[in-house]
Design a protein around this nucleic acid. Sequence first.
DNA 1: CGATCCTTTGATATGTTTCAAGCTTAGTGG
DNA 2: CCACTAAGCTTGAAACATATCAAAGGATCG
Lengths: 246, 246
Amino acid sequence: MPNSAVLAPMLDKLTRRSPLGPAETNAILALQYRLADVDPGTYLVREGNKVKNCCLLLWGFVYQSKITGSGSRQIVSIHLRGDLVDLQNTLIEDADHNVQALTHAQVAYIPCQAILNLTEAYPAIGRALWLDTLVDASMAREWILNIGQRNARQRIAHLLCELALCQEAAGICKAPDYELPMTQEQIGDATGLTSVHVNRTLGTLRADGLISTDGRKVTIKDWSGLRSAGDFSKGYLHQPALPFAA
Amino acid sequence: MPNSAVLAPMLDKLTRRSPLGPAETNAILALQYRLADVDPGTYLVREGNKVKNCCLLLWGFVYQSKITGSGSRQIVSIHLRGDLVDLQNTLIEDADHNVQALTHAQVAYIPCQAILNLTEAYPAIGRALWLDTLVDASMAREWILNIGQRNARQRIAHLLCELALCQEAAGICKAPDYELPMTQEQIGDATGLTSVHVNRTLGTLRADGLISTDGRKVTIKDWSGLRSAGDFSKGYLHQPALPFAA
DNA sequence: CGATCCTTTGATATGTTTCAAGCTTAGTGG
DNA sequence: CCACTAAGCTTGAAACATATCAAAGGATCG
């Protein structure tokens, strides 16, 4: 029996951009799911798999990655509470990337067919999910720009800004302190850099007083400095009304 | 009065992945549009604009790009005949990237509202468009991998393979000869490299007998060599049955 | 309290960029 | 049809950002 509290984060995320009526809301809250707690590193999806569920992330962090033939890993997106991580499985059976837990995490597996049924019955839900996909695509484009045209310092600063704002939007964190549940190697995989170079570059961001770190927490000490170091502007997130930042 | 021949490439592209019934087909072919011929370099959309149309590309090539604060350009995707270039405008009003003509091109501007109406009336069309967006997102992820983890030679070889297969799928070209309507500077913008380095790298691909070039045409002389030089595998394109290549 | 994973630091190697100049091609107007 | 021009291609030499290799120092966790 579904517990509507479990599905609330998904509803939050969708309605942040697409208002939904009571019928749609109830239909979403009635979705069937299967809960799973996973350890860091656990594969939720492997490239090449046939997938029949998509994962609603309830807590923790998860990332999507792809691997080259020679084995180097590129992280292509990072997800947090409320994200429907592999919505694409709804219409594309073959996974073209991996999904792995970054931290301990809890996910609800929702059958793709159930989601598809929902979109048939409620066009507004279909539109909300399509919009979600469009925003993910916009974030992917910015990720391309980040890796293709910015230097190490800018890339890392940009990533930090993005993670901060997304956590803020999802209501996960309290302003200048953010979680950064990534090792320096993973930051490197996300930015197309070496862990060694990430280490040195984080060092300069710290030395310049833009951030401070404490284990897996980052404190943004100078938001506007970090934003300009990362050439960051939030437009691509298509977030309605964010508390922070331009 | 719409001419259904104009909309045929769009229908082709959609039905390649999503079969549509006669009602859906007719509804698509009845869409209103406005034709425009554009010169290379023309902006179809500028970042920051409010957009009310999406562009169906009828012939020629078009690209999406983003610019950093310091003015460097990153090309994030390349489109060809039949592509609905800015489908995202349907649900997101503010453009987060530029769309520019790469070559002389002809586009049909279709009002976003008309497309949205279609998705309301015909869920199958909504699904086809959503799928189109999902495939674009998959291609963006591969683009990230390409730029983030591969060296210059691999990046360029990969780009050539992708363009070849997409042209093949769209029925634009006859096997080993492809159009490459890009300057070396644009290839650089697409791969995160300098035009100088693109030049040298293309030189080695030529010297190794993988390709030959003649103005804006590329001949792939050794497909499997190029594919392995570019670490290319076509899965991410989610194309049903391509003639060529694994 | 050992073992593993992560971070930090140093020295060196390398791929790519930058700067600069000459060359080719295609388009344009006389 | 020929010059003229602008755009793009090619090549060389030098500078630079980042990668690679290697080893030591800190955390974290059973």
